[in-house]
Simulated assay, not measured.
Amino acid sequence: MPTPSSPAATESAEEQRHAVLRAAHDVADDLAADAIARDQAGLPPMDEKARLCEAGLLAALTPPGPGRGVDWLTGCAVIRAVATADSSVGAVLARHYVHTWSGRFYTSHHQAAALEEESRRKQWLWTGAVRTPGPDEDTHAADLTLWPRNTGYLLNGCRSVDTAVTVADQIVLDAVCAVTGDILVVRIPRGARGVTVEPAHGRLGQRVAGAGKVVLDGVTVTPGQLLGRRPYDEESAAPFTALAETALRLALCHVASGIVEGALSEARDLSRGGHAHRLPRADPDLLLTYGELASAAQTATAVVHRATAVMARALDTGSQLDAEEPASVAALVATAENVTSKAALDITARVLELADAPGLDRFWRNARELTAHQPVMRRLRSIGEHYLNGSHRAVAAAFH
């Protein structure tokens, strides 16, 4: 049997990577064929979940381990490929992938291994809504509360979840223990007694992402559903745990990149085909506009790829991660968010001037929904603080 470092093992891992990427592109082609119709219908992503399961992507997008999972670079490439065709499904996949890392972020690789293997075997779809630690957080006014019992807890409260809330198999949430004040991260299985879901209706964009609110009324949380403790603030977080929220933001940058690529490609195809474009293909103004948009898209992609490579190295380092590294990673991710959000909003708006075709507006609506709650000024100040003062505090969150 080849060892992990042998040529045979390396070749096998590379073959697996190519197979996962091929499956992602096949799913993207399938989603692109009816993207407009599904966007207009705005139904919960049950059919989309089935497509991801059939392609093996839910099983593949788990943390890397012996015989399972994919590395961070491959996982992000899969997210981006799917988001190019349908950013709603890309966001579902992004949050799925990051939340499958929850066991590692809040406990240890060894303790998480069994959960990751079960997730792979059963093709679970993960989602969640874990809040960002902050100095102003009021644990006494928590929206989710855990009440200790002889074994485990009872969970009460409600929270909004951005993806797959009606179809996910595992929902990852943080809640405050009413007795100790500890902030605990738990996973709630699909169909658990006391769980009800209120789907979000009438969204501007990301209509197929399956957003909604989860209401929990006396939901039993067993010891096996407890993933670990969430820190109260950035300063008290272990270095590897501090990557959890940043990793999610970066995964969603790949969704934004997919929106940019999908919008620009669809407009280009319309212009090449001579359908619905407003200027002749040889018009200098048209060429100038495509040059500007292509340059902006490539710049955003380069910035995101740099942040992704740095995040991948940090995740590979694991528990040996340097205490200062998470802030440096967060600064790069915040920069990627800043560039991609601007590119996504600008490019998706400007392609509407180049082509007037049904459904092309969905890219702008999706970009707007994805970036609507970004605290731009706060994020830029945090980047500046890290650059000027070398602040070790985590850079402000941009996606929620």
Score class of each variant (00 low, 15 high):
399 F>L: 07
375 P>V: 01
331 A>V: 04
286 L>R: 15
97 Y>G: 04
171 I>E: 01
68 R>D: 01
46 M>V: 14
87 S>M: 00
39 D>I: 00
231 P>T: 04
189 P>H: 06
173 L>K: 07
22 R>V: 12
158 C>D: 11
394 A>C: 14
81 A>Q: 11
7 P>A: 03
396 A>D: 14
247 A>R: 11
291 G>L: 07
261 E>D: 11
389 N>Q: 15
233 D>G: 05
205 G>K: 03
201 H>R: 12
252 L>Y: 05
152 G>W: 08
322 D>Q: 10
103 G>H: 11
129 A>C: 11
227 L>R: 00
139 T>R: 10
249 R>M: 08
200 A>W: 05
191 G>L: 01
88 S>I: 09
372 A>C: 09
396 A>L: 08
242 A>Y: 13
233 D>C: 09
195 V>H: 10
179 V>H: 10
358 P>I: 07
256 A>Y: 00
391 S>E: 04
195 V>Y: 15
384 G>F: 04
269 D>W: 03
373 H>R: 14
217 D>I: 02
276 A>T: 01
353 E>P: 00
205 G>P: 03
272 R>F: 13
297 A>P: 14
97 Y>A: 09
83 A>R: 05
387 Y>F: 14
307 A>G: 13
358 P>Y: 06
38 R>S: 08
181 G>R: 09
383 I>L: 08
205 G>N: 08
107 T>G: 07
136 D>L: 12
84 T>N: 10
385 E>P: 06
